[in-house]
Design a protein around this nucleic acid. Structure first.
Length: 638
DNA sequence: TTAGGGTTAG
């Protein structure tokens, strides 16, 4: 009977009694506070739960605190969480290790790292979970050294780490902490038999991949007894981040055959690789997988698709995705702006930037401004670019220009032929100019034949990066055009002595979902003889129409005939010729080059488009060249 | 109670 009357009474109490009388009632019959708090918390009514907590006073026990703290964690409710903590102190409640750990987690999730540490330091006892929670807090907030110190302290305190601890600490073992630390932790994990644990293994291979040790990463992946979607994604992403795009794609396909599940992160990772390869057809296929899998509402994935389509040369598709997005992050805007910028579509860049500011939902960041400035630079809108830059300098936009933005202005002025102005601008910069900035100006000096400044800048660059062969070549050409033959020879000798051979040129074309790669003077492609013959044939044909090989593009000190032979072996010419042979008349030829396109190949591509009525879309290291009827979207200005 | 993978610039 008492049980029954309690239920009835409880119901009545809930309906009619004031909060104060509820408290009195619960004290009288020693009612457990949990059911009420549980109901309130499970329906997300945190404020009401706190009120109830205040009413219950010292009657709130472990279960009540547990429920309410859980809700605070899931809602990231810091004020409410602090009130719970204060309530514990005021009611002289001594929280267990478990509850104190929940408070550490809460403070961490609410970005109150100091409070989390204070709680950790005050703990009379700690267990592996409290140590791991605190290490995780440091790890997640980017405090790698602090995370490592705590891990070491934990080992010294004779607390045995578990698989959670290893998975956590390994996420900090790259970058500033260095890969050797990761290797040491790997050894500790092996000794404790955690190496093959799925989460530890994923963390390990990710650590190796992020440290550029892709072989070690692959070794860990290979040894995992089981592989889930995270482990597979981590290794694919590792290859993609290293720029090993073909390997990433190959692995993705292989794992798909083996039955790997893909989620939004897997797709985002493989899209990175496809963007690198500019493999549009593969990209479309992944897009359709994404649509079929029902993951097309993830902003991050849509951002990757925007980036993939624009890097594959299809900026219209990118815009379609951008327009269809129900919500956009700053990265969505940046990806679209960068896409337009790389295609030299300065007007579209400015219109989109205007729209971004008018919508005022997402604040532009430093990268937004880099994209806009670089868009103005590539699209020859230097005055507009300068206006935007000086608004930044005057603090009108709340983004302070950094070295990158100053670099864009140097590029902007230099490309526009305002070389002296660019030189003065560098001298007045509030930063010490980097090699990249001087390199940009040297490029402008070459394009606009400013020998005087070019020689000064070239000499500075030789001091800053003596290993870069490109600088020697430009400088020696500048000396040659000034008739300073002795200086020219000295530079050539110096190059032989000091310069490191530059990254070998490589171009590729995607055809029927196969990526055909060509190297300079290729000896590997199965159709190399046919392709080389076609290049020679094209050269003769183009010469009749006015093509003059630009021998200054050749690095080597050889005679003119040899120089022309070297030029004909450039990988982008091979890829263009292959495109002509292997695709039907009238179709667009898409070529990707790993380096900047040389002046001679640019001119050659224009002849291909003009004499064969083909659109040539050529992506080099810096931008797109969309060539139609012999005219390039870059305005011969890159 | 604590844990692993993703996107953007020159």
């Amino acid at each position: 009977m008492p049980r029954k009357s309690f239920c009835v009474y409880s119901h009545v109490r809930h309906l009619f009694l004031s909060p104060v009388s509820q408290y009195t009632f619960s004290r009288q019959i020693s009612l457990s506070p949990s059911p009420n708090l549980k109901t309130l918390c499970s329906s997300g009514q945190l404020k009401e739960a706190l009120l109830q907590m205040a009413i219950l006073g010292p009657e709130v026990k472990f279960e009540g605190y547990d429920i309410i703290l859980n809700e605070c964690v899931s809602q990231r409710a810091i004020r409410e969480g602090q009130r719970v903590h204060t309530h514990m102190i005021k009611t002289c409640y001594l929280p267990s290790v478990y509850l104190r750990t929940r408070l550490i987690v809460l403070y961490n999730k609410c970005d109150c790292l100091g409070d989390a540490r204070e709680m950790f330091d005050e703990m009379p006892q700690r267990n592996v979970v409290s140590w791991t929670a605190m290490i995780s807090a440091y790890s997640q907030r980017g405090f790698a050294f602090e995370a490592l110190n705590l891990f070491v302290e934990m080992l010294r305190s004779d607390t045995e780490p578990n698989h959670f601890t290893f998975a956590t600490i390994l996420t900090s073992c790259y970058g500033s902490l260095g890969f050797e630390t990761g290797r040491q932790i790997h050894s500790i994990a092996i000794k404790r038999n955690y190496e093959s644990h799925m989460f530890v293994g994923s963390s390990l291979l990710d650590m190796y991949a992020k440290s550029g040790r892709i072989r070690d990463a692959h070794g860990v992946f290979h040894c995992l007894p089981e592989r889930d979607v995270v482990a597979c994604t981590a290794i694919i992403s590792g290859y993609a981040q290293m720029g090993l795009d073909e390997e990433a794609l190959k692995l993705f396909r292989q794992l798909q055959i083996e039955g790997m599940n893909s989620n939004s992160v897997t797709y985002a990772s493989v899209l990175t690789a496809l963007s690198g390869l500019a493999a549009l057809n593969h990209g479309k296929q992944v897009h359709s997988h994404v649509l079929r899998s029902g993951q097309c509402s993830y902003v991050v994935l849509l951002n990757s698709l925007i980036d993939m389509y624009s890097k594959c040369g299809n900026v219209c598709y990118a815009r379609r995705i951008f327009d269809s997005m129900p919500e956009r992050t700053c990265i969505s805007w940046n990806a679209m702006l960068v896409g337009y910028s790389k295609h030299g579509m300065a007007r579209e860049v400015l219109e989109l930037f205007k729209l971004m500011r008018e919508e005022n939902k997402v604040k532009p960041d430093s990268i937004t401004y880099l994209a806009v400035l670089s868009g103005c630079s590539h699209g020859q809108l230097e005055d507009m670019g300068l206006e935007i830059f000086y608004n930044m300098v005057n603090g009108k936009d709340g983004i302070e220009p950094d070295m990158g933005h100053y670099g864009c202005v140097v590029d902007l002025l230099g490309r526009a032929g305002r070389v002296e102005e660019a030189f003065d601008f560098i001298k007045k910069m509030p930063f010490v100019p980097t090699a990249a900035i001087w390199g940009s100006l040297l490029g402008s000096c070459r394009v606009h034949s400013n020998v005087e400044i070019g020689i000064i800048v070239g000499q500075k660059l030789l001091e800053l990066e003596p290993e870069n062969a490109g600088n020697y070549v430009i400088l020696s050409n500048l000396y040659a055009s000034a008739g300073k033959w002795e200086d020219m020879r000295n530079i050539r000798d110096l190059m032989q002595e000091k310069a490191v051979t530059k990254e070998p040129g490589r171009s590729w074309v995607e055809l029927d979902q196969i990526v055909h790669t060509f190297h300079a003077s290729d000896h590997t492609h199965p159709r190399r003889e046919e392709v080389a013959k076609k290049v020679k044939e094209l050269s003769i044909k183009f010469k009749e129409d006015g093509y003059v090989p630009d021998l200054s593009c050749v690095l080597y000190d050889v005679d003119e005939e040899q120089k022309e032979k070297v030029l004909l072996g450039h990988s982008e010419k091979l890829a263009l010729a292959f495109g002509l042979i292997a695709t039907p008349e009238g179709t667009t030829i898409r070529v990707i080059k790993n380096l900047r396109i040389c002046v001679d190949c640019h001119s050659f591509a224009k002849f291909v488009s003009k004499l064969y009525a083909r659109t040539v879309i050529l992506r080099d290291k810096n931008r797109f060249h969309n060539i139609v009827g012999g005219v390039c979207s870059c305005g011969d200005y890159w």
